[in-house]
Design a protein around this nucleic acid. Sequence first.
DNA 1: ACCATAATAT
DNA 2: CATATTATGG
Length: 604
Amino acid sequence: MDNGCFSSPRRDFPAGLRVLVVDDDPTWLKILEKMLKKCNYEVTTCCLARHALSLLRERKDGYDIVISDVNMPDMDGFKLLEHVGLEMDLPVIMMSVDGETSRVMKGVQHGACDYLLKPIRMKELRNIWQHVLRKRIHEAKEFESFESFESIHLMRNGSELSDDGNLFAVEDVTSTKKRKDADNKHDDKECLDPSSTKKARVVWSVDLHQKFVKAVNQIGFDNILYLSRTQKIVTNHICLAEVGPKKILDLMNVPWLTRENVASHLQKYRLYLSRIQKENDQRSSSSGLKHSDFPLKDMRSFGFQNSVNNQQQNDVAIDSYNHSDGSLQLQNVETKSHEADPKGIVSQSTIAKKGRILTGNIADTNMRESLRVGLNQTFAPLESEENHAVFDCSMPTPYTWTEVPHMQLKEEHKSIVHLEDSFNQLPLHGKQQQHIQVDQSQSVASISSAPLITEEEVAACKEPKPLFADYKNDYANSVSSIGNAVGTFPIQPGSLIMNGQSSEPISTTNSGLKTQGYNNLSSISDLEIYQSNLLLGGEVASAPSLDEDLHFYWLQGECYNNMNFSLQNIGMSEYYDPGLISEAPTHLYDSADYSVIDQGLFIA
DNA sequence: ACCATAATAT
DNA sequence: CATATTATGG
């Protein structure tokens, strides 16, 4: 194996990797040194852990990775591991002759990025650079990681290095759980180098999906703006003409992701949405407009992400949010959700309420609460949506997620607990909510037996969001997150839709509208009318000022977004009432653009 | 052996 | 780019 191994020196990156090898057995040291050198690494050896530490301290960045034996006279390998982790934060690979599970576990728990069994094979050494890269990628986060990423790519392609998609897929060793590695026999080596040429399978983690959704929504929003603009240019927002994998990819800004990955996911996403829509349609048709009942079913699937804090953002957000719900049209809202759910078990009715809420009431805290409750509930009931869960359409709120992960991490397996926590976090919530929580938790729990997020990940990387998780985790995460999200955060429409730039104009608008235009809208009656118009396709009489127009559009956008989850009943097309869009030429919406939007946002 | 998802082919 | 098919993993 030796020879073959490096047949490809072409890779630049791994070459020159500075490796510090620590082992009290000189024989092993020699062997390892030789092997590592064959890999074109720059090798430094030492037989004492203490010595190793001092070397590392001397030159903090003189090494890229450390390979240490576990059993050493002067200092326990784990101890060394700890120090390294603490002081220089370098990836450390542990090695020993026995593969006793407990030891491996210990190594991993202490932060080892891998655990090799002696005798060590070239293959294993050949891939250690991946740990370094991985770590750097993590640190670099998305953007910066780019370069590294590319290099990886090159390398991968260039040689058939066992690539092992692990690089990405496996966080750090941690694999313990997933892989059966538990069995000593397998060694972890496999982990690292699956040695396959296959392309790494992308795991659409919640986080990733969230980005995806966000991108989709953004594009949709942009399109809407574009349409509206046709008449008046509201913002200098850049308009995207079409929604497609490529654009989504761009928006997502995830370096390692390929267009194909996105396309594939998009396909699934659309499928999912269509399915849902279908269901909705059926239901709506059968039951008629009253849908409020079923929505839940579909809704469950969606995760709502929402931003947490933003709630406060103001009414606007809420409004929009509500609007979306409103799409449901349910009857009027008056149901004041607040009281409605004494129990928190708001049933579907809640949902309906939600819808109504949309209008002006928004401001009320109570309302909001109720709203949330409703949402929560929606989830609670669901039981089987694991899959669906994956796609939440909610709007993306960056902030939210960061938090979510935390929670998840914290609680890991006990979904219940963590759900509760999340709930607790809610600023306002009554018993009802708790009640709901319980429900959710239950459902969730059943779904996710696996830890939400790999502990490993957590431990290994402090990063809140795991780039890759295994499916199970994934699901669990999504589910749980959804639960959390729902419970925890209110949805914040606006923010999501527009990132930075757009926010300005809009916000301004909002403020202005709030008082004036907004109020107009806010009045329930108006809203309803508005909605109905939308639904019906009637024209919206009002939409007077530019600002207002904008506002409208904005709302619409949200509606759309919301529609993703909430609205199942109504046909999208109806939403896009030309009238709403104001004077925009009809052709715009009817035509491709329009359809595009639909599809993009909702699927159709 | 089945199902769901992502990869790949068309 | 959209859809159909295949591959993979649970």
